[in-house]
Nucleic acid binder design. Structure first.
Lengths: 197, 197
DNA sequence: CGAAATAAATCGTTAGACACGATTGATTTA
DNA sequence: TAAATCAATCGTGTCTAACGATTTATTTCG
């Protein structure tokens, strides 16, 4: 039994839905399943009834829920009482493509702001030519790129996700008559693309 | 922050000694060190002052100690309230060489009895010839062996520790005059050996 | 009623965490 | 002063846990 598992259990109990809980916890659904399973095996007690794909909490689960809540409260208390981590403050300068900035950032900023209310944001969209220098100099703290490959030394790079490019056209467009389209077929047509790096 | 770490912290705080804590937790001393280190880094707070090799708990550590105690109590409560694990009961039949039975078992039985008071023990010392059959039939639940190698199928085998054989002799014994002794040197001398399997 | 969509469980793989033993460096004891 | 002791560190191996893909069962919708 670990705090991590109790937290997962609490979120599942709140949602009565493994998939939503996984989203809320930024985990894979399979990981949620296995954590709950581990808890149930350790306690030798079912915590949820799975009727079809409906999830109901058992009596034992309700008992555990109270404990799990108290444990979470206590860990929060520990963090605020003992941790000298004076909450971060200052400004984060982030370079993000507009698509990323408008689609993903609002949710991220929202979450981050709850934990670190004294940090403000500064979004810019500098050119990719300057990017390397801007990062090295520290004028930019963080950058999101849409690209195939990155070769920056002295900078931490992490691949966050891959995304398929999907071609969208008006119903009347000649290309819609083809079953399969290759890059070559686009030759001569006007195509709108998200700006990549 | 995990329950396991808080428990380790609590034991270290009780002993003010990393090595003793490691013994009590059946862990390596280095593991205790790294767990405490991880806690201190997560909370960005020193929990113990290491003055030389003397360990003192800090003010923050004392605060955390209270929380850690309460968390441990709560996990115990969860286990007893929710786990359907009706405490084990019955008899464990254990085959152990006399040296093992007299040197190691008292402490082990003592600990085990605290957790499972309704389990009684039955120690026997059957011959190694019968051992395989006794294990397979279930007449013996558990066996300790002092041996170089074990080749039992359908039985879980785990190496617990290796131990050096040390030769002890009276000061006047002729062999004491040699700086190094090989097995061949023992030829013709009477040697008392622990019974092995 | 049948097809499509949805959700939890399972499986195999991989990456990360953790424990260990050995060693080091510092300090205390003999 | 030498020996013993203890926590920290380092390198290594193992075990855990997260993941993506798939399966199975159920529900929803056409």
């Amino acid at each position: 039994m670990e705090i991590r598992q109790l937290r997962t259990f609490r979120v599942v109990a709140d949602n009565l839905n493994f998939t939503k809980a996984a989203d809320e916890l930024f985990m894979a659904q399979s990981s949620v399943s296995s954590q709950i399973k581990a808890l149930e095996e350790e306690l030798k007690t079912k915590l949820f009834d799975r009727i079809g794909r409906r999830v109901l909490i058992t009596e034992a689960g309700q008992k555990l829920y109270e404990y799990a809540r108290r444990m979470e409260d206590m860990t929060d208390e520990i963090r605020s009482e003992i941790s000298t981590g004076q909450d971060a403050q200052g400004t984060l300068t982030i370079r993000a493509p507009e698509t990323v900035a408008s689609v993903y950032m609002p949710e991220i900023v929202n979450r981050f702001h709850k934990d670190h209310p004294r940090v403000s944001f500064n979004f810019i969209n500098c050119s990719d030519q300057q990017l390397r220098e801007e990062l090295n100099s520290g004028r930019i703290d963080l950058a999101f790129l849409i690209t195939d490959s990155v070769h920056f030394k002295a900078v931490n790079v992490k691949m966050l996700k891959t995304q398929r490019l999907i071609l969208v056209a008006n119903q009347t467009h000649p290309l819609t008559r083809k079953k399969k389209i290759t890059l070559a077929d686009l030759n001569g047509h006007t195509v709108l693309l998200p700006k990549t790096d």
